[in-house]
């Protein structure tokens, strides 16, 4: 039974309540579903709605996105226009009006499309807890979460240069469906070959993963079908897919190379 819902008006107050055992809630898309089904497992909820954690600021190519920024705000931000396609493939506009950047870091795959993007972007996460603040690579938060009492306050990312951002999500239906396979990548090319590649995959492991095996196939090679197919097959070493109602582990591994290729050739 929920005994309290707090809506603190400062980060410090939010940290205090979280440290005292309250369940942090940003957009509510996960927490309220659990409240509704009676499966929350906490008695106190701490809403971050008024804790002052919103806002998108740009400093050159570096964007700082507040943790309670909604996914709609990301979708509509001119500074983050490269993420528009990824946002429109995520849930529905109604959910995006509520779901937040920070919250997306903590949902299990095959949900959490923005987290996959942030991993490819090598984003960092600002965290504040009772013992102070720190900034860590997003991969660390995706792998380990945060300590009790800690609040994610923002993510920082570098806006990729034009033409270097790739995103492709295979779903069971055109809109509002979780990832069968999601590919997010920042890949630089020069002289027709790949010079650097950061590829993140969603839907194919409990958390977003870096497709390091695919990355090493691509370095020094052109983004062409044969190379991409090979990279996709190599990427099977980086995944540990599960069965769910969207797809089986077999299917996800089977079509991974197809979707990796389509991501980089920009095919639907």
């Amino acid at each position: 039974m929920i005994t309290a819902v707090r809506t603190p008006e400062s980060l410090a107050a939010a940290v205090g309540h979280a440290a005292a055992g309250g369940r942090l809630m940003a957009g509510g898309t996960v927490v309220m579903a659990q409240v509704n089904s009676g499966s929350l497992g906490y008695t106190e909820i701490v809403s971050l709605r008024r804790a002052g954690l919103g806002g998108i600021t740009l400093d050159g190519p570096l964007a700082r996105v507040g943790a309670t920024t909604t996914l709609t705000e990301v979708e509509q931000s001119p500074d983050l226009a490269f993420l528009r396609g990824a946002m429109r493939g995520l849930a529905s506009p109604t959910i995006r009006n509520q779901a937040t950047v920070g919250g997306n870091l903590f949902v299990p795959q095959p949900y959490g499309d923005l987290a996959v993007c942030l991993l490819a972007l090598d984003a960092t996460v600002e965290v504040t807890g009772p013992d102070g603040s720190r900034e860590v690579p997003v991969g660390v938060v995706l792998a380990n979460g945060v300590a009790p009492g800690e609040v994610v306050t923002a993510v920082r990312l570098a806006v990729p240069a034009p033409g270097t951002w790739f995103h492709h999500k295979a779903m069971r239906r055109r809109l509002n469906s979780a990832a069968i396979v999601a590919v997010a990548a920042v890949v630089d090319t020069a002289g027709g070959v790949v010079t650097s590649a950061r590829i993140a995959l969603g839907g194919v492991a409990p958390r977003p993963v870096r497709a390091v095996s695919a990355e090493s196939v691509l370095i020094g090679r052109p983004l062409e079908s044969e190379v991409l197919e090979r990279a996709g097959r190599a990427a099977r070493a980086d995944i540990s897919p599960s069965d769910d109602s969207y797809a089986s582990a077999w299917y996800r591994a089977r079509v991974l190379p197809v979707h990796l290729r389509r991501a980089f050739l920009r095919q639907p």
């Binding site: 957009g27 509510g28 709609t72 009006n97």
Partner: peptide
């Protein structure tokens, strides 16, 4: 009760939301 069907859709401060996922005390 989990924001998947949309039958609870209302406008909150002008934006469509799943009202089953909004803790009323927070708004």
């Amino acid at each position: 009760a989990q924001g998947g069907c949309g039958t609870c859709t209302v406008l909150l401060d002008g934006r469509a939301v799943m009202s089953c996922l909004v803790a009323v005390q927070t708004v």
